[in-house]
Computed example of a mutant assay.
Amino acid sequence: MEDSETPQRHGQLREEAANWFAIMRGPDAEIRRDEFEAWLARGAIHRLAYNRIAETFSNGRFLKEDCEGGLEKEPTQEHSPKPQRKASRSIGIVCATVSIIALCGAVLYLSTSSMRVSNPEKTQPIASASPSVGQPVQLATAFGEIRTFRLADGSKVTLDTDSVLLVAFGKAKRDLRLVRGRARFDVFHEARPFVVSAGNGRVTARGTIFDVSVGDDRRVTVRLIRGAVDIDRLGPTVNEKAAALRLTPGQQFSFKDGGQQQVSEKPEPDVADRQWPDGLREYENVRLDDLLAEANRYSVVPLLTASRDLGEIRVSGTYRITDPKRLAENLADLLGLALVTSSDSFLFAVSCTGYEGKNCQPPS
């Protein structure tokens, strides 16, 4: 029933999610954690309902008068007095527990939001639900691999090619460290902070989806897709910290040990950044050599050009760069180039002249 819940069921889920949000931020959180996780495990729509309650609370989207006005303004399909009184009792409990301001706004927000859920993607779970301190779980991807993992708390992380992430969940905090590569974090909301360390900085999730990458030059880049994150950086001395920075959706922040830091505004994250977990990249008027350099991060067999001038050809379009053979064939066809295929490379050339006897596909 995950993908076909009725409006009445949505109202019930909102109420259950609100109650669980209050419980998991209260003194009985650890006592009832097993019961809570069993509720989450019932389906993706339960996780979505809880996440939306928590996300709205974290972002503080609504004002106090939303609660003072009750649920009478709620534009929902549930018009009968009985469901409204039931929801009001639930909201009263939660407001008293975690803040009248935020959670009443969360229910108002949920009532106007779609609860449709697509089929959950297949993900790889972490073996241990509670890695012990000092013994973090290591997640890694091979060269050319992009893989999504389901974490023990319900969060998801997608690792780009040749990436390493350490995960250590304790009772008080969820600690992760990106050692190398790139990761996208889709954070499940709960009382324990979700903190990702990279380089000399730490990213604390505030109900969010975000990317963190560690470049070959050790520069760390944080890109916020949704929600909010706080970034703390260590200063020149052990006990010194730079001022914390909060990003909003579309912003990107990069920093490096002893190097320059930069915040850039990108109100609408480009398709290339949004779609990298699917192996897709969108390019607009880029050099062929630059596109091939990106593709070679995923290919054991390199894609090369026979001459420097071919590498200067400008290319636009959306390509699946994790499939080097198909990418090479598509580019050769698009650009009218010959493609010489061998066990050592995919080589772009002007024609098959000089490559007689080799597996050369002439220009189309």
Rank of each mutant, 00 (worst) to 15 (best):
D273V: 13
E284K: 15
V300K: 12
Y319R: 03
G317H: 14
E329Y: 00
A328H: 04
L337C: 07
G336P: 01
Y298R: 06
S307Q: 04
V301S: 01
V271K: 11
L331F: 02
F255D: 01
D323V: 01
L304C: 07
D309L: 05
Q275F: 09
D323L: 08
Y298N: 03
Q275E: 12
L292A: 15
D270C: 06
L331T: 11
T322V: 12
L327P: 04
G317I: 12
E294L: 11
A306S: 15
T318P: 06
L339W: 05
G250H: 03
T322P: 01
N296L: 10
L304F: 02
A328P: 00
V340H: 04
L280G: 08
L327H: 06
D309S: 06
V301D: 00
A338W: 05
P324V: 08
D290V: 10
R326S: 14
L310D: 06
L310K: 00
V286K: 14
D289I: 10
T322F: 03
L280I: 14
Q260R: 15
L331S: 09
E268F: 05
R297G: 07
Q260W: 00
V286F: 07
V286R: 14
P277Q: 10
V301P: 00
S316H: 11
V301K: 15
T341W: 00
L331D: 12
D333R: 12
V263L: 15
R281C: 04
T305V: 15
S342N: 01
G317Q: 15
R281G: 00
Y283K: 10
L327Y: 07
Q252E: 14
K256R: 13
I313K: 14
A332M: 08
N285P: 01
L337R: 11
K266I: 15
G250V: 10
Q275H: 05
A306E: 12
A293C: 01
L331I: 15
